[in-house]
Nucleic acid binder design. Sequence first.
RNA 1: GUCCCUGUCGUCUAGAGGCCCAGGACGUGGCCCUUUCAAGGCUAAAACACGGGUUCGAAUCCCGUCAGGGACACCA
Length: 513
Amino acid sequence: MRRQRGSRIPGAPLRPAMTAPAPASKPVKVRIAPSPTGDPHVGTAYISLFNYAFAKQRGGKFLLRIEDTDRARSTRQSEEAILASLRWLGFTWDEGPDVGGPSAPYRQSERLPIYREHVEQLVAAGKAYWCSCTEERLAAVRKEQMARKQNPGYDRHCRTRNPAEVRAEIEAGATGVVRLAVPREGETVFNDLLRGEIRFANAEIDDQVLLKSDGYPTYHLANIVDDHLMGITHVLRGEEWITSTPKHVLLYQAFGWEMPAFGHLPLLRNADKSKVSKRKNPVSLSYFREAGYLPEALINFLGMMAFTFEDGREMFSLKDFVENFKLERISLGGPVFDLAKLRWLNARYLRERTSDAEWVAYLKDRLFQDEYLTRIVQLVRERVEKSEDFVAYADFFFKGDVTPPAAELMLKDCSKKAVVVLYEELVEKVDTCFDFSASNVEAMMRHFCEQKGVSAKDVFAAVRLMVTGKKATPPLFETMSVLGRERVRTRIRAAIAALKALPEQPAGEAKKP
RNA sequence: GUCCCUGUCGUCUAGAGGCCCAGGACGUGGCCCUUUCAAGGCUAAAACACGGGUUCGAAUCCCGUCAGGGACACCA
């Protein structure tokens, strides 16, 4: 890939936006804006790293904002886990929900009046409009568009109606949202820091919802309002945002605000090149911590995704990265998140940069933490005769992989495929089982079996084998709870993979379901 | 399907027209070291997606094709 950024403009310096950031003179300020809707994600760490380095290198500010505008999915628990993970990796932020700052609050759910006020301003200026279309109508429009092989999108029905009428409907109880009035003609253009000029025909841009019917803003609105109010100068985010950038540009124009510079980083990928996902990769930062990866190694590894040092160095600290980071050395092909190289790096950190004493401290802190050992002892004390039996009996609490015999994971009267699907559905349940207490795990599992109409007894036996590698263990739900959601999900996924690798129908064993 | 982004070994990548019959690292194979296993050393196989231009000269610039990805929500 040859970088031609900006060179299409005659007389302009190569990659002008990088040498002279769009909002000149202002001190650099960037942000990471995670959405607290699940486990802390490795993508968040990756994007943070680039933002952090970019800002710190220029003596700028790095800010953390919580984008919790999805009321149904956002949780405080997830927010806390995200902050803890980012701190574990060594990041610090100058402003954020926990540390405060001049633009507080930093949680979007606490800024509702601000968005409301701004959206009214847009409506008054004719840049946005209220829409009272029902979900049913939207669905019908969509269906028809699909049938006619048109692009799905809002048909701008309410934009052509009398605003007072629409308003009256909403006041009378119809659900109402506010949409952006996208110009029907012309183009919206922006200069990507990494990719040069990107243009979109306005006709392709949907009249995006800005304010939802529950009064919460959508990402698009909140993001622009906050970035402006918080003085963000550079937005470095994932490539997935490129197609919504024109909407953001239009919003800045509608408000009459100066735009930050945008740069879209290549997305981390699974081995099959799709966007990295928990289905195909461990992506939770909690997993990496629990599995015993050093934060230094993970940071180092993420830093070699899409970036290389000029001197070719492969081992570097966060500080080194900050000092040597250059936007123009980012390569744009989406890097595959390949754990093999991470393992090698982690091993090097352990070997070369970790003293015996540090090792011991690390083990005590991770694997042999008092609290963890206590929970295990409580489970095994009745089942062990002398303390040396402990190791043999409780080994799976300390292991990485447990390698259960795949053939024994089959269920009576089920095809291999059916079993795989069943276990995959179970992992989904585990993924969203945030309260991993024994009683809650039990409820989740029993409910699951009931729902699927499968024998709880058989499934529990299989799960026991999957998560411990053994047939004889302490009570299953307590065991799962102590192991923790991360280990449980990882082990079940590993077992599923082993199951898939099994020859189709092992010798007359399973009948069709 | 439409729009947008991207395309160098299996993977991460170096490469800014001659330094490149393409370099490094992970992984894989072999050999050495070694009581074993690692680590380490040496070594091998392994890539410029394809086709047209431009140029004395193209991995590098232009166009097209193909391929991959992303987006098309009252999720971010």
